[in-house]
């Protein structure tokens, strides 16, 4: 494992911790899209089915379990926690997730490495992760004002993907025969989804003001 991959994973983990801390400390999930969180849960469940039949490293196993547990913890807070669930912007969070899930699934059936249940589900998780942030970005666009923690959460999620891109370039030059087109293309799309957000995030940071998205 190279430093870019590790930095990417740590940024991913940190983004989730930031979101959980925001929810726990402020007892509020205002501005957080439950749809996106549920999509991430679907992504992790379909991707980490290999926990049952393949072992890569203790690091991999532990991280997978953490990602699964934290995803469901966030969903639990937003759906079941007495105080937190009342702060959820349900009326604003209306993205039709089936418009993401169905095309990703069809694409996974058409473009995959191997026509097996676990491989198709794994491929589906790769495609779905690329677009899973969209309900969150749409919610942000609607509520306009982005609180710092939510902004940092999304910024870190985007950074994690950007670090993975660097990791792939590094692996391409250091590992003989290493290539994974499905992951590369999806990952590039996924990183591009954040570009607009990055622009406004950096702008707010440079001007030292609260982040605001244009109408």
């Amino acid at each position: 494992m190279n430093i870019f991959r590790l930095a990417g994973d740590m940024t991913h983990l940190l983004s989730i911790i930031v979101l959980l801390l925001k929810i726990q400390a402020t007892k509020s999930c205002a501005g957080v899209s439950l749809k996106t969180q549920e999509l991430y849960a679907v992504v992790f469940v379909t991707r980490y089915l290999d926990l049952f039949y393949s072992f890569i490293s203790l690091y991999n196993t532990v991280m997978k379990i953490i990602f699964l547990l934290t995803a469901f913890t966030i969903i639990w807070y937003m759906r079941k926690h007495k105080v937190v669930c009342q702060t959820y912007d349900k009326e604003q969070d209306t993205f039709r997730v089936l418009f993401l899930i169905v095309p990703c699934f069809v694409l996974a059936l058409l473009v995959n490495h191997e026509m097996s249940v676990t491989e198709v589900l794994w491929t589906f998780s790769i495609y779905l992760e690329a677009v899973a942030i969209l309900p969150q970005l749409v919610l942000l666009q609607r509520t306009k004002n982005v609180d710092n923690l939510t902004g940092n959460y999304i910024f870190m999620l985007g950074s994690y993907r950007a670090l993975y891109l660097v990791n792939w370039v590094y692996r391409y030059f250091t590992e003989l025969g290493y290539r994974q087109w499905i992951v590369w293309v999806s990952g590039t799309v996924q990183t591009c989804v954040y570009l607009d957000f990055f622009y406004y995030y950096v702008q707010a940071w440079r001007n030292n003001e609260r982040m605001k998205l244009p109408g």
Partner: peptide, 10 residues
Amino acid sequence: SSPTTTHDEL
């Protein structure tokens, strides 16, 4: 067909 890459990334 290309060999399946082991999914060693998260």
